[in-house]
Amino acid sequence: MTNDQNFLNWNLVIGYYLEFGIWDLVIGISKLIMNLFFYLDNNTWLHRLDPRTKIIGVILLSCLCLCFNHPLYMATISLGVVLIAVSSRSLRNLWLLRFILLFLFLFSSIMWPFFAKGPTPLGSWGIIQISRESLLYGLAMGLRLSTFVAIGLIFLSTTRNEELTNGLIRSGIPYPVAFALSTALRLVPTFAGAGATIIQAQISRGLDLESGSIFSRFKKFIPQAVPLFIYAIRHTQLLAIALESKGFSPESKRTFYHELRMSRVDYLTMALLLLFLGLALYIRIGLGLGVILAGRV
């Protein structure tokens, strides 16, 4: 429901940059980060999974992606990931980032054939040789790269910032570290917003960002950086006051409103993923299938 406000539009980001300069680019990027960390508030089976299961799931699925370098086998896994996205209603975020996914796929598919060499040549131009296998291998690599990103996206679309923190703590990471991490992530857009106001204020006073050499541009950075730096100090101090006043102290114990509990579904999910991974390894190593270029991952 609040997602519409974080709708990301690349044309807009680039347009802002041309219009106003670096800070608006920072805002654009931080919006992207917010988007990456943007949780879609649904209640699907994936949302209900323990964050630890999801962290392990991401690792297992990524390993699964590494099993095959034949595009057909790889495509099967990609399809599986898309199905997970559909069932967890996170397709929306994949669609938002479709250009990135497509770019990664195309980039990889086009670049790999130049580097991998296969037995069935299709043509050669000087030192560059392209074979049928290297083309297919490129496709598989393109799929693999986009699938990696998609897995990460699904994870972030179904896991709250707090749950991630929580999951990290339960996986043995100290609370202050996990808390600092999640707070830092949340501060990026706040600081970027302040940066935008600051730059507008300075433009209103005659700061000219449209011309000048690199050196003079750097000098123009100071009127933007100093107020932002002071804002950041002030903001973090207020945050610290608010945190302590609500009883937060990094060393002491605390409870969690969203208590983590591994349920049957969690164990089942992990078992299933392990089973798939074992099966895939058997197909690859035992049967020698799913390989287009032997000797490559």
């Binding site: 910032n161 207020l238 009883g247 937060f248 002491s252 605390r254």
Partner: peptide
């Protein structure tokens, strides 16, 4: 400054933050 006092991802968790620090049961 209300902006710097809020840092959770939803309203409910914002409300829960203090009681969590006090180790209250769920």
């Amino acid at each position: 400054d209300f902006e710097s006092q809020l840092f959770s991802t939803n309203v409910e968790l914002e409300m829960a933050f203090g009681p969590e620090n006090h180790c209250l049961p769920r």
